[in-house]
């Protein structure tokens, strides 16, 4: 056979092997003795995890999150924070500031830490708030815990607000006794955040936080109520099924201008309709999938996962860590743990 014929044979063998490898990796029989002993290996790896439980509960929560997301437009607080930070920069140089930073809820200097952080000094960011939230929840200080995250949600930073919201939703889901309770809590919290974002936050964000905390705890007090949405209501709610009104904004409708009236929180429509009674949130009670969100202009960002190597291919996926580890590439990998196998299949 000629050299070109040998080359063609080699090419054909390579292509054949590639096809066989594809069959192998997709779990199909390879019909190749050479690859037969790898089939058991692939089969064991692909055994995978059991189908997920609580699909309906998760779907409800995820749909509510998708409906509730919107870009933040608040910049005023940031401008104020910048000015305040420049005026108070000398404080950051003091030993008190250094000592206060890193203190936890309950510590003597924690109040100092939070005050400095509010003006932009030693701000540990949303991760620090979330850690503090967990500490406060575990110590039973629910109001303060929710106030803490509520402040982040209202801070004007969309990424931090989104992360805080996500932690709130997870906390509500985990703290619920059953799927229905979790659904209602999550939906009510998201609705409340949507309705009150950017409005009526007190100096320490506690008004907003109290509202959320009341929702989070509401099922304890409303177990006997009907399932028509009534148990989303905290005791001081004006309506029978709506999210709690922020006590800091009630009676002051002029402050409540909806930043994104095209949004719908859908799932919680029964409760949202009560907020319309104030005349301040004209489109928050549209009910599920009214299409209002579908017409909401997007950010204009095009997310193409196939963008450059090591980049955030979503354009949106947050990575709080140092840039050297930010991409899909990673230098260190502990590998799967000892229990990394597919759950004893």
């Amino acid at each position: 056979m000629s050299e070109s014929g040998d080359y063609m044979d080699e090419m054909f063998a390579t292509q054949l092997r590639e096809r066989e490898v594809e069959l192998l990796l997709t779990g199909a029989p390879t019909h190749s003795d050479d690859l037969a002993d790898l089939e058991a290996f692939v089969a064991a790896l692909s055994a995978g995890d059991r189908p997920p439980r609580d699909v309906e509960q998760m779907a409800t929560s995820l749909a509510a999150v998708a409906r509730s997301t919107r870009p933040s437009t608040r910049r005023g607080f940031r401008r104020f924070a910048t000015l305040a930070a420049s005026g108070a920069i000398f404080v950051a140089m003091s030993g008190v500031a250094m000592a206060a930073n890193g203190s936890s809820p309950g510590d003597l200097l924690y109040g100092v830490d939070r005050t400095l952080e509010r003006i932009g000094i030693g701000d540990g960011g949303v991760d620090e708030r979330i850690s503090e939230f967990d500490v406060l929840i575990s110590s039973g200080s629910d109001d303060r815990a929710f106030a803490l995250l509520a402040e982040v949600i209202d801070s004007g930073d969309p990424d931090e607000a989104a992360k805080a919201e996500e932690h709130l939703v997870l906390a509500a889901t985990k703290s619920s006794a059953n799927a229905a309770e979790a659904q209602e809590k999550v939906a009510a919290i998201l609705t409340f955040i949507e309705a009150n974002r950017g409005h009526g936050i007190g100096v320490d964000g506690r008004d907003f936080g109290q509202g959320i905390a009341e929702i989070a705890k509401s099922n304890d007090n409303s177990a006997n109520q009907s399932d028509s949405g009534a148990n989303e209501s905290p005791p001081d709610d004006q309506g029978s099924g709506g999210p709690p009104e922020d006590p800091g904004t009630q009676g002051n409708p002029a402050q409540r201008t909806d930043e994104n009236p095209g949004k719908s929180s859908g799932e919680t429509s029964s409760s949202q309709s009560n907020t319309q009674g104030n005349g301040n949130q004209p489109n928050l009670g549209n009910g599920q999938n009214t299409g209002s969100q579908g017409t909401t202009p997007d950010d204009g960002e095009t997310v193409e996962p196939s963008e450059g190597e090591g980049e955030d291919t979503t354009g949106e996926v947050r990575d709080n860590g140092p840039p050297e580890n930010a991409g899909p590439k990673e230098d260190k990998d502990p590998g799967p743990p000892d229990h990394a196998g597919p759950k004893d299949k």
């Binding site: 929560s61 749909a63 998708a66 996500e166 997870l170 095009t302 193409e304 996962p305 196939s306 979503t314």
Partner: peptide
């Protein structure tokens, strides 16, 4: 769970077909 909550939160910014969605 955290992954899916982030997917839900950011899905409005995603543009692409199902294959790209899986990758995303």
């Amino acid at each position: 769970s955290e992954v899916f909550y982030q997917v839900a939160r950011d899905i409005r910014r995603f543009h692409g077909d199902e294959s790209k969605f899986r990758s995303w």
